[in-house]
Nucleic acid binder design. Structure first.
Lengths: 195, 195
DNA sequence: ACAAGAGGTTGAACTAGGTTAAGAAAGAAT
DNA sequence: ATTCTTTCTTAACCTAGTTCAACCTCTTGT
């Protein structure tokens, strides 16, 4: 049982790993323990690591010109987060990532990922499928944002991510849904009153 | 010069192809010519093909419970479209795809893609990078939808996709931006008056 | 114990964007 | 040429969601 075992199990669901591959993956992953509130990535800096969450919960958000934060995504166990654009292109990130709870993450540097994929091209498949699934989710979120009212979006958020409620303050859920905390409060009240 | 040559050139930018690979790719791509208005994919049916656009322009959209269409994405030359969720999971599609202009597309069936990737796993890389870039774009669109007003979104749409204006009626651009055609009209008027 | 924050709720006034309906402009079809 | 259809615009009115400010409840730190 080493520090990257949950990550290895996760990859193994998509691509069967050899012992050698497992060992190599373990060797390039940097385990990191973060406390609630800690930054894992800061906007303005070039993102250096792909971030994999083993336990706890992170949130990645964009801060606009009026200093308002907008939640891009939450990440709980077995999810990735971080600014792909920044890390792949080497440009400063527009997102910050912070821990919403004490969490254990694995950091995979850009260089390590490249080395990994060069050495074991089979693993491209893991990331391909990961990104493919994320794409489906993101497009659904865009469309739902355009076609569904706030209350409907809130209801389906709760159905889709019931486990997040334990970690995530309502104001961040509001932000994720694209509404203000005050309005989410009203939505919740209406839903309570109805049943 | 065969029917898939533009597609092969596109892949070749990411992964250097051998002659054998090129030949195989050509053999599994189904070229299709569609006229403006034609459907390439219909919601309710299981999507059978990944759709690559060689020329022209397609749009993929979701029709909500009130029969209102919401544009998920446009696809011009060298872009892919189609409902990934439907094709990968074999469930009925929630999106339809139609030609906004006479277009030439290549269809890659689910089976052919699987065969391709099994035979030449190197090509996973092409799709991985494709999806990775799409993910960046989608997330940016979500965040912009939450942080920028309609006029700002319209301006950056025009900057980002100047070539689309020739193909795409304003009402679909409005839909893509998440506003009504009437409101886009107001936005355009305001921008005209200002300069 | 106390203060100081952070998160959540409420309500009143406001606004970005939606709705409805009608007309103008521009293609496409006969 | 002229009709038909689709796209775009305008204007009056409407509403989902915002803003601002006050207040309440928990935590957290001292």
């Amino acid at each position: 049982m080493n520090t990257a075992s949950s990550f290895i199990a996760h990859i193994n669901e998509t691509v069967q790993l050899t012992e050698e591959e497992k060992q190599f993956i373990s060797s390039i992953c940097l385990p990191l323990t973060v406390r609630q509130g800690d930054f894992v990535e800061r906007s303005g800096e070039v993102t250096r690591y792909y971030i994999y969450v083993q336990s706890g919960c992170l949130m990645t958000y964009f801060t606009d010109k009026d200093a308002v934060d907008h939640v891009a995504q939450f990440a709980t166990a077995r999810w990735w987060t971080g600014d792909l654009h920044s890390i792949t292109k080497g440009i400063p990130s527009i997102y910050s990532t912070r821990a919403l709870a004490d969490s254990e993450v694995l950091l995979l540097s850009k260089h390590s990922q490249e080395e990994l994929l060069e050495k074991y091209p089979r693993l491209e498949r893991y990331f391909r499928i990961l990104y493919q699934n994320a794409l489906v989710t993101h497009l659904h979120r865009i469309i739902q944002g355009h076609s569904a009212a706030a209350d409907e979006r809130y209801i389906s958020f709760r159905e889709k991510y019931p486990s997040l409620e334990q970690y995530v303050p309502l104001k961040y859920i509001a932000s994720y849904l694209g509404i203000t905390p005050e309005f989410l409060s009203k939505v919740r009240r209406r839903l309570m009153e109805k049943g």
